[in-house]
Design a protein around this nucleic acid. Structure first.
Length: 565
RNA sequence: CGAGAAGUAGCACAGCUUGGUAGUGCACUAGUUUUGGGAACUAGGGGUCGCAGGUUCGAAUCCUGUCUUCUCGACCA
């Protein structure tokens, strides 16, 4: 592409309404433009880059034997009602009415329609298995869009769905997709981790996420220093590192005046916080539930929801608390008339400190035999330094952005929508499904988060909209123009995407722009052509060398080849 | 939805406290000089000051409401 008479602009200053590195750089480089909160245009440069990502995804999906199709975004609500997902998604789904007052949604994900599509074709076990996919728009009414392309309300998603006759088949399909995913993310040049994850609104058994490692990640990843254990914090199992061999002592009530927090109480009583138990008074769908966990731990709301089979957990208000004898600040698991969940770890604790359900009093030397509870479960978040549930090694955290996922869905959608087949014995069975998502926009944002410097983006060869920038220093110099034109044609003939900056700008402007938009290679055509030389510079490592004009295309081809290995 | 911040030219901002008819830098147009890391000078063009009410002789400025955007939280496949 020649820049003169093309749509191309960059911004010299930071965008006021984009705080994240990737959002800001993508806007400044003229790749995207905000239309509203979480709604963006992909401008030519950005769309070309996004397309390169989608092309890699398509190639690997096709290689894996998946078939591409296209689903509508506008869908009658009834499809989502059949699987109960109108309630599950709630306000997260865009709902609208047509002129006849019929309810429709803008599809937030497409399990239902793919199930319907499969139903049109599947009759016999001989029709299974197969995998379908699309790369199409998704709509989600996010409560708070943020970080540029990371959390948006309309976005393209690659979603694939596998259909099998049994669990063994699903295992094969799942692994097939996982292998394809590994190839995709490796080709994209992104720094990622695969972690175990929650199934959330999708339902089903196994789920894994592909997480791009970045500091602005919204997910916490729990990783092990010694083995390959990797889990999303939401579901990471806690293994207590407590080892208390001491004798159980006699429980004792002590006066603890004006000690508001568990830290204060422990300080006052000169007790390690790890030897205390604190209470969290929660509202579980309108019912008071009191959770007891070790004093220095954090409640994992997601785990509590699962244990109770509810969707949402909030802190209880005073009214709800008043339905029990709990005394905020002094609540303890002894003689408490409310539903009580204690964390697993408490079973191992000895002679701990806890509230006495009495203003200004706590117990010390409490033990499991002294307390009353309804449920024991793992309800806390893992902490850094905890033991790995696989190997006992030390756990540490990283932040990640979810850029892809794999779900073993099971039969939820097939059952609700009647997707069945006849087996060898003429018996009707339900099809078993898997679903597999990738967010190309998030991938773009994550790659930018991971690859930038003070001058702008540094795009990997695999997704860069142009692999080479041709910068001609003096547009009035006919010799330079002739050489630039010659190189431009030669590069194109070698199937190399090239951006030729033939604008009447000063060299500094051209250098800054090509750096900002992150083109991996730059050929500068300037004074040295009198010696038959041009300059070749790599964006990533800033290495620059003089190369003979008739050798530069070969050199570029070599570097591109090395980069795409 | 809770808390905070911000909406003035294409972009980034000043002006608002103390009301008097809108300004700076970049970008844009023309010219001159420049020309290897975001050039300099000269002369220009471009604004219903987010929107709607109100106070006032007069509102970007004061008051009320409302919309939008960002940040933290809540939430989130």
């Amino acid at each position: 592409m020649k820049l003169k008479n093309s749509y191309f602009y960059t911004l010299r200053e930071d965008a006021k309404d984009e705080e994240s590195t990737s959002g800001n750089l993508l806007v400044r480089s003229g790749m995207i433009k905000k239309v509203g909160a979480g709604i963006y245009m992909y401008l030519p440069l950005g769309y070309k880059t996004l397309n390169n990502i989608m092309k890699i995804i398509k190639e690997e999906m096709d290689n894996a034997g998946a078939q591409e199709l296209l689903m509508p975004s506008l869908i009658p609500s009834e499809y989502y009602e059949k699987c109960g997902r109108v309630a599950i998604f709630g306000d997260d789904m865009f709902n609208l009415k047509d002129r006849y007052n019929k309810a429709h949604v803008l599809g937030p994900t497409h399990e239902e329609l793919f199930t319907i599509a499969a139903k049109a074709m599947v009759k016999s076990y001989k029709d299974l298995h197969f995998t379908l996919y699309q790369q199409a728009d998704k709509f989600r009414d996010e409560p708070r869009p943020r970080y540029g392309l990371i959390r948006v309300r309309e976005f393209i998603m690659k979603d694939a769905y596998s259909f099998d006759k049994d669990e063994e088949g699903l295992d094969v399909s799942y692994l097939n997709m996982k292998n394809a995913y590994n190839k995709i993310y490796d080709r994209l040049g992104i720094n990622y981790k695969i972690v175990r994850a929650d199934n959330g609104a999708m339902g089903g058994s196994l789920s894994e996420e592909y997480q791009a490692i970045t500091d602005i990640g919204e997910d916490v990843l729990v990783l092990c220093k010694d083995c390959d254990y990797a889990s999303n914090l939401e579901i990471a199992q806690t293994v207590s590192s407590l080892q208390q061999d001491e004798e159980e002592k006699e429980i004792e009530m002590v006066h603890t005046p004006h000690q508001a927090t568990i830290e204060d109480v422990c300080k006052y009583l000169n007790i390690d916080v790890k030897h205390s138990v604190k209470a969290l008074l929660m509202n579980a769908d309108g019912e008071l539930v009191i959770c007891f966990i070790r004093g220095d731990r954090e409640l994992c709301e997601n785990k509590v929801c699962k244990v109770l089979g509810i969707r949402e957990l909030n802190f209880a208000n005073d009214e709800l608390i008043a339905t029990s004898n709990a005394v905020p600040g002094y609540t303890g698991p002894i003689n408490l008339n409310a539903k009580v969940i204690i964390d697993n770890e408490i079973l191992q604790m000895k002679n701990f400190c806890c509230g006495a359900n009495k203003e200004e009093y706590h117990y010390i030397n409490a033990n499991v035999k002294d307390i009353n509870y309804d449920i024991v479960a793992d309800i806390v978040n893992v902490q850094e330094g905890d033991k790995c549930p696989h190997c006992g090694g030390e756990l540490y955290f990283k932040k990640g952005i979810e850029i892809g996922n794999l779900f073993k869905l099971g039969t939820k959608y097939a059952e609700n929508l009647g997707l069945t087949y006849l087996d060898e014995n003429n018996k009707e069975n339900v099809v078993i499904m898997g679903s597999y998502g990738i967010g190309p926009g998030r991938i773009l944002a994550s790659i930018v988060e991971q690859n930038n410097d003070e001058n702008g983006l540094i795009l990997p060869m695999s997704i860069a909209p142009y692999q080479v920038a041709l910068v001609q220093i003096d547009m009035k110099n006919d010799e330079q123009t002739a050489i630039a034109e010659q190189l431009y044609q030669e590069l194109l003939q070698n199937n190399i995407e090239v951006i030729y900056d033939n604008r009447d700008e000063r060299p500094g402007v051209k250098f800054k722009d090509m750096d900002l938009i992150g083109i991996p290679l730059r050929i500068t055509i300037g004074k040295k052509i009198t010696d038959n030389l041009v300059e070749l510079k790599e964006r990533r490592n800033k290495e620059q060398s003089d190369i003979k004009i008739d050798e530069v295309v070969e050199k570029v081809k070599q570097i591109i080849k090395d980069n795409l290995k």
